[in-house]
Design a protein around this nucleic acid. Structure first.
Lengths: 217, 217
DNA sequence: CTATAATCTAAACAGTGTAAAGATAGCTTA
DNA sequence: TAAGCTATCTTTACACTGTTTAGATTATAG
């Protein structure tokens, strides 16, 4: 029962059969590869079709259009993102400051590990932000952060955030979000404007900043 | 001597003469209008040429290509951005914490007032980041912030930033940069996921966050 | 086994950036 | 003033893009 039917076409992009067999999944896969190689804006639907070995019109049967495909990629990204934030949060145990700090590291770590995915996730013009499922998973990530803030500020779930705790949330979120964006651009430089490796940004720069992460109200 | 020859073609996009007379400047103007109306990715070189009333190939004589034109727009944006940061810095007087806070407000204010320009400025793929003049003006904005940090941390110019002051810089920069990005996306929401006006984000949300702006070392 | 639905291809259209070749106008120099 | 040179612009063309339409093929349900 647990045996999985492995479709040979899943592996070989160059197929000979008229029907692909697993096109939807493979389009998601190659889309991710493309935005990784060429950036979010380097993505083209035709290139995705090409890599999947199908005609340019084939994707339309699985996704409304290019935006629909990218929406799905972003959605999957948010799912993983939320899960990693949650794991970090739980690793923090009962210490709210530690929960917040580990979430912050996980946030930036995700951005640097999956740069294209991360950028896509926050590029509203590239996906359908009206999509219900998308809004749901995005909101979930937000709520993981909110959870740690509530713990730090002693605001029980259900109650509205106080102005001060709201400020704390904004400060923490903006910090990691801004750092991630700067790190993925040409923003962050080392001494003498030298570009930095991702490892350097994560292991050297980020800890310096996190000294200033507001962790209590 | 000081009388300025006003070229009528500067105002009327629909021109009849073969030569435009002020095409370079007008392309910069309409480019800014286009990215404001349609977003950074909504920009097309042909549309810019259309609005300037010239053929699709005309812009090539003033800018290498579409990227070249956008680079110039971003460069002009950075010039104004740097000037506004500098003005805010000076308005802070001798109080380092106040200098930092006013710069932070100016940073976010610029992003919300010129959303398209701001997004373009930090979209490395949309402009030629090897351009020397561009690097210069971008670096200038950075140095205005650095100045306030040096004052706050008591690090004289010339000396390298201490790790702690470097962290302070990263924290402040990331905060305002991240807030700006979230504010321009669909990230920041009010109670009940309701979208917020720019005024609300600037006047209600931002001050809450700035309570946590690290202002001393 | 057949009808229907799902999935794909082929062809076409309007749009894009940019390159090449030619037209026009402004400017310099005699 | 006239000639020639250079800057500026147009026309045309090409290779892309996303998406639509009509038709081909295959899978599947009855």
């Amino acid at each position: 029962m647990n045996s999985v039917k492995i479709n040979p076409r899943t592996r070989k992009p160059k197929r000979t059969a008229y029907h692909h067999g697993d096109l939807r999944q493979q389009l998601l896969t190659v889309a991710e590869q493309i935005i990784l190689e060429r950036g979010v804006d380097g993505f083209t639907l035709r290139e995705a079709a090409r890599r999947a070995g199908v005609s340019p019109a084939a994707p339309a049967h699985h996704f409304k259009d290019a935006k629909g495909l990218l929406t799905e990629v972003a959605l999957l990204g948010f799912r993983e993102f939320g899960a990693e934030l949650e794991a970090a949060d739980q690793a923090g145990g009962a210490d709210p400051a530690r929960r917040l700090r580990l979430q912050a590291i996980a946030y930036v770590n995700f951005a640097l590990k999956h740069p294209a995915r991360f950028q896509l996730m926050f590029r509203d013009d590239k996906h359908d932000n009206a999509n219900e499922e998308f809004k749901k998973v995005a909101a979930h990530s937000y709520r993981v952060l909110e959870g740690a803030i509530r713990a730090a500020a002693n605001v029980p779930p259900g109650e509205e955030l106080t102005p001060r705790s709201h400020g704390l949330l904004l400060a923490a979120w903006s910090m990691v979000h801004g750092f991630s964006h700067l790190a993925l651009g040409r923003g962050l430089r080392g001494p003498g404007q030298a570009p930095l490796t991702k490892a350097a940004m994560l292991n050297s720069l980020l800890p310096l900043m996190l000294e200033y992460l507001p962790s209590s109200i």
